[in-house]
Design a protein around this nucleic acid. Structure first.
Length: 502
RNA sequence: GGGCCGGUAGCUCAGUGGUAGAGCAUCUGACUUUUAAUCAGAGGGUCGCGGGUUCGAGACCCGCCCGGCUCACCA
């Protein structure tokens, strides 16, 4: 039997001892008067003398994270929502049964305590406990108290343990919630309606990506998990829902990296009668407020960097190539507009694809401060409206920060015949082996044939924005359960069965 | 998919071919304001898995599994 299983059995057998003292090992409802974070926020400024005079009563619950026993007394730290408060147990201050319970407690158990607040000799805010109760038994050894849980594989696979052992992890996901809340609140305030569109689609579109395939038994049809909600949201725009947004999951059957998870959360919003320039202003406003709501200010630390969401630089893609060119001699605007020059600096098939290729290789990683790049070639923008002055380009922009793409927006193409032509271009690319090219979506064309108002639309990657707001280097640190290969047999059902048979 | 790095006690990590280690955790004892509590003692290992080289492998070689970083792909 492994050490871990011996510990498990030891703790399992303690369940009976707890019951023998008259407690339920898995507890019952417990009405705390206050949370540990509330106590820390409210009483940290109070001096020992102030607390001594008031002896504020508290009733708290939490998980035992440290224990220091000293014979007839002892200290423990209880954790709640990632924050810890010390409690002091003294034999004289509680009854005999509760003291026996205290002696049975293990690291990781969840308990409730009544008492009053005071400061110890060393000045730490603590609860002087006069009553204890038991709320839930822990059967597993906790990670080391000093280093916490560092094994990233265990952190991702057993996020519950990560949340217990690494208090800051909760803060990351609180911040993620604040990001989503901020976008939602801002868009609602501007008259956008939140909608939900299909995640299972018989045609996939709205992005360049390979899909996951699944199957519906009763209808006997293959369905794709959506790669984007775009084409459905624009059907709603065509139907007269003038401002809509959706915050939900997209699925792309592609590589996994520090910036890519196969399922990820996208905000998409569409505003009738607006164009991409309106969206540039809106984007700057949204991100600025998200930074404030998520971090308290517009300047956000990211690694060695500080990202300022209070201002948003803007370049056209061509300007960016001229500006951020890596070689010693920067190209001129005339060169960057010249298809021959572009094709002499990239292997891609068309001038537009060459421009994007050059941009990605030379510029993307240089876009540290939040930046809008606009005017994208038509070949890579099958759903965006062409620029009125330059039909090779579209009225489209992307948002970059920390060298990472975080958003994509454009004036929506609402001319059904031009959209038909673009789909056919995509089909031609598919013929040539481009697995990510769009499918023809005739129902979408039909919707456009009814007349879709001129519209601006945008998608923002919530995970990536959250990375920026939480100073996270990997997207897996902002997704509670990132995709990993299955773990295989765990064996804990056997442990429970064996322990309970003894 | 390619390259690089990692997997040793529950956790965090040492261990450059010669008897598998430390700290924390666990168990026993002492201790009524400690805080990485302290003190005395004890137990705990499929060295990721499978082959190979060797008198001898945790270490060297080959294959595989899992993870991380990175490149490719992508948002």
């Amino acid at each position: 039997m492994s050490v871990e299983q011996e510990l498990f059995d030891q703790r399992f057998s303690r369940i009976r001892e707890i019951e023998a003292l008259g407690y339920r090992p898995y507890g019952q409802r417990f009405e705390a008067s206050v949370t540990i974070p509330e106590i820390l926020a409210g009483y940290t400024p109070k001096t020992a003398e102030e607390l001594e005079a008031a002896q504020p009563r508290v009733r708290i619950a939490g998980r035992i994270m440290t224990v220091r026993r000293m014979g007839k007394a002892g200290f423990m730290h209880l954790q709640q929502s990632g924050e810890r408060l010390q409690v002091y147990i003294k034999k004289d201050a509680i009854n005999e049964t509760e003291f026996q319970l205290y002696q049975l407690l293990d690291l990781g158990d969840v308990i409730g305590a009544d008492g009053y607040l005071f400061r110890t000799r060393t000045g730490e805010l603590s609860v002087h406990v006069d009553s204890l109760t038991f709320l839930s038994k822990n059967l597993m050894g906790l990670p080391e108290k000093y280093h916490g849980l560092e094994d990233v594989e265990i952190r991702y696979r057993q996020r519950y343990l990560d949340l217990i052992a690494n208090p800051d992890v909760q803060k990351v996901f609180q911040t993620r919630a604040a990001v989503v809340r901020s976008f939602r609140r801002q868009l609602e305030a501007k008259g956008f309606t939140e909608v939900e569109t299909p995640m299972m689609q018989s045609l996939y579109g709205g992005a360049a990506a390979r899909p996951f395939v699944t199957h519906h038994n009763t209808l006997d049809v293959d369905l794709y998990l959506r790669i984007a909600p775009e084409l459905y949201l624009k059907r709603l725009i065509a139907g007269g829902m003038e401002r809509v947004f959706e915050i939900n999951r997209n699925f792309r059957n592609e590589g996994v990296s520090t910036r890519h998870n196969p399922e990820f959360t996208m905000l998409e919003f569409y505003q009738s009668y607006a164009d991409y320039r309106d969206l540039m202003d809106l984007t700057a406003e949204l991100l600025r407020q998200v930074a404030i709501d998520a971090t308290g200010g517009t300047v956000v630390p990211f690694g060695e960097l500080e990202l300022d969401f209070g201002k948003m630089r803007r370049y056209t893609m061509r300007e960016a190539v001229c500006e951020f060119w890596k070689g010693p001699v920067k190209p001129t605007m005339d060169e960057v507009k010249d298809p021959a020059w572009l094709q002499s600096h990239s292997q891609k098939a068309t001038a537009g694809e060459c421009l994007v290729d050059i941009f990605e290789r030379h510029c993307e990683e240089a876009l540290i401060q939040p930046t809008i790049i606009h005017e994208y070639p038509v070949e890579v923008s099958p759903l965006a409206k062409q620029n009125a002055d330059d039909p090779t380009m579209t009225d489209r922009f992307e948002i970059f920060a920390a060298g990472m793409e975080i958003g994509n927006a454009f004036t929506e193409l609402n001319d059904p015949n031009e959209q038909r032509r673009r789909f056919e271009m995509q089909l031609a690319m598919k013929e040539k082996g481009d697995e990510e090219a769009h499918q023809m979506d005739e129902d979408y064309l039909r919707a456009l044939c009814y007349g879709m108002p001129p519209t601006g639309g945008e998608g923002i990657g919530i995970d990536r924005v959250t990375m920026l707001m939480t100073n996270s280097k990997s997207i897996r640190d902002v997704i509670l359960f990132p995709l990993l290969r299955p773990e295989g047999e765990i064996g804990i059902a056997d442990w429970l069965r064996e322990a309970s048979a003894k």
